[in-house]
Each structure stands twice: as structure tokens, then as C-alpha cells.
């Protein structure tokens, strides 16, 4: 289906769409944002969505929040960016601060402490799994595998500051990618 080009999305429409993506975005906002913006609202085609998302991915910061900034601004300037970002952040921030408040008050109780220890181990496992998932296709090339290992060693074992690790590794990685693309 061809996307319906939004001539003028209102601030309210932007806020509501991104609000939906934020509040239902458990375990990652990307799938739900795609569903809301591409499939339901049809504000963007699949490829337009992918293009903007991949741009946001190459920039620093939170991918989907960057997406909300860029898409909101594209539609309605600064006010549109504010509407989209408020939309995606409002409900999750309120919820997470509620959790944080409960943690501060009840985090010391024995049953809560035990459940939190299990929760924390599970969250750590999820991050490990995500890392393996991203790394698995990259590891086929020896050079890429070496880069992954160097980053892991510098950051996790040598505890280098992120900026230093990036300054050491990114130029090499960019050079490799640039030569491969030629």
C-alpha cells in the first residue's frame, strides 16, 4: 500500500503516535514504532522508515529518541520535535520513576532484594544475548572479529573510557569499511 503522505501532521497527532510507541514499547521501541508509524498511520513507507532509522543508528544517542527528534522536526519544526519526543518519553519516564521510587523505599526488604537479584541477572543475560546476536554475523570476518575482541578487551577488561576506546578503534574500523566499499 502506498504511504499516505502527511501534508501537515498536527502536534497532537505526532504526540499521540509516539506516545503509543513509547508506552507499548516493552523490550525495545523499534518494532512497535514501525507498526504505529508505517503500518497503522502510514505516515512513512517501510523504506523511508528504514532510511531515517539507519541514519539515527549511525549517530550517537538513543536510536528511537533520535528518530522522534528527526521525524518530529521534519514534520513540524522545533515544536514537532518536542511533541514527538514528549510523546515517546512521557509515559515510560513516569513509569520508570515510579519503579525507581518503589526501589528506593522497598529495595532493602529481603524478598524484594531477592527478586531484584534475579531480575538483574536476567537483564544482564539479555544484554549478553543481544551482544552475541549482534556479534555473530560480524565474527565471520577475521578483521571484524579482531575489532570486536579489541573493543571488548579495552572496555570490559582494561576499563578504558569510552571516548579513548572509540578514538583508538573507530579510525581503523572506518578505514576497513571504506576500503571494502570501494
Amino acid at each position: 500500500m502506498p504511504p499516505r503522505p502527511p501534508s501537515a501532521l498536527s502536534h497532537k497527532a505526532l504526540f499521540l503516535a509516539f506516545f503509543e510507541a513509547g508506552i507499548f514499547g516493552f523490550g525495545g521501541v523499534l518494532p512497535i514504532a514501525r507498526r504505529v508509524l508505517v503500518e497503522r498511520r502510514r505516515w512513512l513507507s517501510q523504506s523511508e522508515f528504514n532510511e531515517l532509522f539507519s541514519l539515527c543508528q549511525t549517530l550517537p544517542g538513543a536510536n528511537m529518541v533520535n528518530f522522534a527528534f528527526a521525524y518530529g522536526a521534519r514534520q513540524r519544526g522545533a515544536g514537532g520535535a518536542v511533541a514527538a519526543v514528549l510523546g515517546i518519553m512521557a509515559a515510560p519516564m513516569a513509569l520508570v520513576m515510579l519503579f525507581g521510587g518503589l526501589y528506593a523505599r522497598y529495595g532493602g526488604l529481603a524478598p524484594v532484594r531477592h527478586a531484584l537479584a534475579g531480575l538483574a541477572a536476567a537483564a544482564a543475560g539479555l544484554m549478553l544475548g543481544a551482544g552475541v546476536k549482534i556479534a555473530a554475523p560480524v565474527l565471520r570476518s577475521v578483521r571484524h572479529a579482531a575489532l570486536v575482541a579489541v573493543v571488548l578487551a579495552l572496555v570490559a577488561l582494561a576499563h578504558w573510557p569510552l571516548v579513548l576506546a572509540m578514538l583508538a578503534v573507530l579510525p581503523v574500523s572506518l578505514l576497513l569499511a571504506w576500503r571494502a566499499a570501494r
Binding site: 549482534i134 571484524h144 570486536v148 573493543v151 574500523s173
Partner: peptide, 30 residues
């Protein structure tokens, strides 16, 4: 074109960083 290059360059770096994040969180939670 440059975006594809940057994306390809970021992939192994991101993989290493997310693995490092998993490592750090696991060490602190286990």
C-alpha cells in the same frame, strides 16, 4: 554511500561494546 560505510564500520564496534555491556552487567549481578 558514506552512511553505508559508517554503518559497516560501527557494526563490529557496537558488537564489542554491547558484549562489554553484557560482561560488565553479568560481573556485577552474578
Amino acid at each position: 554511500r558514506w552512511r553505508r560505510v559508517v554503518q559497516a564500520a560501527l557494526l563490529p564496534v557496537t558488537a564489542g561494546l554491547v558484549l562489554a555491556a553484557g560482561w560488565v552487567l553479568t560481573a556485577q549481578s552474578v
